[in-house]
Simulated assay, not measured.
Amino acid sequence: MIYYEDLEIGAKQNFGRYEVTREEVIEFAKQYDPQAFHLDDDAAARTHFGRLSASGWHTCAMTMAMMVENMKNVKQAGLGSPGLDNLQWKKPVYPGDTLRVESEVISKRRSQSRREMGLFKSRAQIFNQNDEIVLEMTSNGLIAVRDPDAPIEG
């Protein structure tokens, strides 16, 4: 189990493999982002996307699925997340793409008010099969500390 004390700034992980299907792109869009270029080939062809593309929010959901799967393999004392910083959709995601994640711990600090937890930030970059970045974000994670009574570094 990985606790706050085990996190190292600069530590990197590469994980995930998510194959984007046409059916899933359309189904997600129908429910959550029903813009024509996510639902209809002809409408999509008339946009700068050029063809049917996944919703950016769908790309986030696929990323989260890969992150959770990774958490099953690399057990952390995770306590959830207070949110994201700097979410950017860099390139469209299309049916037939295969996505993967690269992440790097960029900072960490103990909570001043909740001694049992720390906060860490990770830069996540999501790549397609051509090693092009399609999404980039900084995620904020809450994680348990091994020893809540240990001094908090100043």
Rank of each mutant, 00 (worst) to 15 (best):
M66S: 07
E102M: 12
G16S: 06
Y18T: 00
E19Q: 13
H38Q: 05
V74P: 01
V74L: 10
M66Y: 06
L39D: 01
G50C: 06
C60L: 11
H48P: 05
F49H: 08
G56I: 07
V101H: 04
T47I: 09
K90H: 04
A44R: 00
V93A: 10
V105F: 06
Q88H: 09
C60G: 13
C60P: 02
E8Y: 03
V101M: 13
D33H: 03
P92W: 00
S81A: 09
S53A: 15
L99Q: 05
R100N: 10
G10C: 09
R46P: 00
Q112T: 13
V101S: 04
M71A: 14
S111A: 07
T21K: 11
A44S: 07
L7F: 10
F28Q: 01
F37E: 01
V74N: 15
A54C: 11
Y94R: 10
R115A: 15
D42G: 02
M64Q: 12
G96D: 08
S81C: 08
F49W: 08
K91L: 12
P34I: 08
G80H: 06
A36P: 10
P82I: 10
G96I: 06
W89M: 13
F49C: 06
S81M: 02
R110P: 11
L7M: 09
M66Q: 07
R115W: 04
A36K: 02
K72V: 09
H58M: 13
W89I: 12
G83H: 07
M62C: 13
K75Y: 07
I26T: 02
T59S: 12
F49P: 00
K108Y: 12
V68A: 10
Q76R: 12
V20Q: 01
M67S: 08
R17W: 08
T59F: 00
G78I: 05
K72H: 12
P92V: 06
E102F: 00
Q112H: 11
A29R: 06
M117E: 09
E116G: 15
T63Q: 03
A44C: 09
L87P: 02
V105E: 07
D40Q: 10
K90D: 06
Q35W: 06
L84E: 13
L79A: 15
A29C: 07
T98I: 14
G80A: 07
E19V: 11
H58R: 01
A65G: 12
K108M: 08
V74W: 01
G10F: 05
L7G: 04
V74S: 11
S53W: 02
Y94A: 14
F28A: 01
